[in-house]
Amino acid sequence: VTLFVALYDYEAITEDDLSFHKGEKFQILNSSEGDWWEARSLTTGETGYIPSNYVAPVD
């Protein structure tokens, strides 16, 4: 499982989006939707859509 880490803070715009803070880690559930990925936060356990350009793979 490839994990991703937030590079910036993000505040949800719609109820389907997931708010997060810089440094938060995610498991990507679906990355086939283009620039918005469905993800689960490993910090909160919540799922929602995140902007793919706000995250990077964890080394």
Rank of each mutant, 00 (worst) to 15 (best):
V1H: 13
V1R: 08
V1W: 13
V1I: 13
V1A: 13
V1C: 15
V1T: 13
V1G: 13
T2N: 11
T2Y: 12
T2H: 12
T2R: 08
T2K: 12
L3S: 05
L3F: 10
L3N: 05
L3P: 05
F4Q: 03
F4G: 04
F4E: 01
F4D: 00
V5F: 10
V5E: 07
V5T: 05
V5K: 05
V5L: 06
A6T: 02
A6E: 00
L7M: 08
L7N: 03
L7D: 01
L7V: 07
L7E: 04
Y8H: 08
Y8L: 08
Y8S: 07
Y8V: 06
Y8F: 11
Y8G: 05
D9R: 04
D9N: 08
D9P: 06
D9F: 04
D9W: 04
D9T: 06
D9G: 05
D9I: 02
D9S: 09
Y10S: 02
Y10M: 04
Y10L: 04
Y10K: 03
E11C: 13
E11V: 14
E11H: 11
E11R: 09
E11G: 06
E11D: 11
A12E: 02
A12S: 11
A12H: 06
A12Y: 02
A12R: 07
A12F: 02
A12W: 02
A12N: 06
I13D: 09
I13L: 13
I13E: 13
T14M: 12
T14G: 15
T14I: 06
T14V: 07
E15C: 11
E15W: 08
D16T: 15
D16P: 06
D17A: 15
D17M: 15
D17V: 15
L18A: 01
L18I: 11
L18T: 02
L18S: 02
L18V: 05
L18K: 02
L18E: 00
L18P: 02
L18W: 04
S19N: 06
S19I: 02
S19P: 05
S19F: 03
F20N: 00
F20C: 03
F20L: 05
F20K: 00
F20D: 00
F20G: 00
H21N: 11
H21Y: 13
K22L: 06
K22I: 09
K22D: 02
K22W: 05
G23E: 03
G23M: 03
G23Q: 02
G23L: 03
E24P: 00
K25M: 15
F26C: 01
F26D: 00
F26K: 00
F26N: 00
F26H: 00
F26A: 00
F26Y: 01
F26T: 00
F26R: 00
Q27V: 15
Q27A: 09
Q27L: 14
Q27K: 08
Q27S: 08
Q27E: 14
I28M: 04
I28G: 01
I28E: 00
L29F: 07
L29T: 06
L29Y: 06
L29D: 04
L29A: 05
L29H: 05
L29K: 05
N30P: 04
N30D: 13
S31W: 13
S31T: 13
S31L: 10
S31R: 12
S31V: 10
S32D: 11
S32K: 11
S32E: 11
S32I: 10
S32R: 10
S32N: 11
E33H: 15
E33W: 12
E33P: 11
E33Y: 12
G34N: 11
G34S: 14
G34E: 12
G34K: 14
G34T: 13
G34R: 12
D35F: 14
D35Q: 12
D35L: 15
D35W: 12
D35P: 11
W36I: 08
W36C: 07
W36K: 14
W36F: 10
W37T: 03
W37F: 07
W37I: 06
W37E: 01
E38C: 14
E38M: 15
E38F: 15
E38W: 15
E38V: 15
E38T: 12
E38H: 15
A39C: 05
A39L: 01
A39N: 00
R40I: 11
R40M: 12
S41D: 03
S41E: 03
S41L: 07
S41A: 07
L42A: 05
L42Q: 07
L42R: 03
L42P: 02
T43A: 10
T43L: 13
T43M: 10
T43I: 09
T43Y: 10
T43C: 11
T43D: 10
T43R: 14
T44Y: 03
T44F: 03
T44R: 04
T44C: 04
T44H: 04
G45E: 05
G45V: 02
G45T: 04
G45H: 07
G45Y: 07
E46D: 09
E46L: 14
E46S: 10
E46A: 14
E46G: 08
T47N: 05
T47W: 09
T47G: 04
T47H: 08
T47Q: 10
G48A: 03
G48N: 01
G48F: 03
G48T: 01
G48R: 02
G48L: 02
G48H: 03
G48Q: 02
Y49D: 02
Y49L: 13
Y49T: 07
Y49F: 11
Y49K: 14
Y49S: 06
I50W: 01
I50T: 01
I50E: 00
I50H: 00
P51C: 08
P51F: 07
P51V: 02
P51D: 05
S52C: 09
S52F: 08
S52A: 13
S52W: 09
S52D: 02
S52E: 03
S52K: 14
N53F: 10
N53G: 10
N53D: 09
Y54N: 03
V55N: 01
V55S: 01
V55H: 01
V55C: 05
A56F: 08
A56C: 09
A56E: 10
A56G: 09
P57W: 06
P57H: 06
P57S: 07
P57Q: 08
P57K: 08
V58W: 14
V58Q: 07
V58C: 10
V58K: 04
V58L: 13
V58Y: 14
V58F: 12
V58S: 07
D59C: 12
D59K: 10
D59T: 12
D59I: 12
D59A: 12
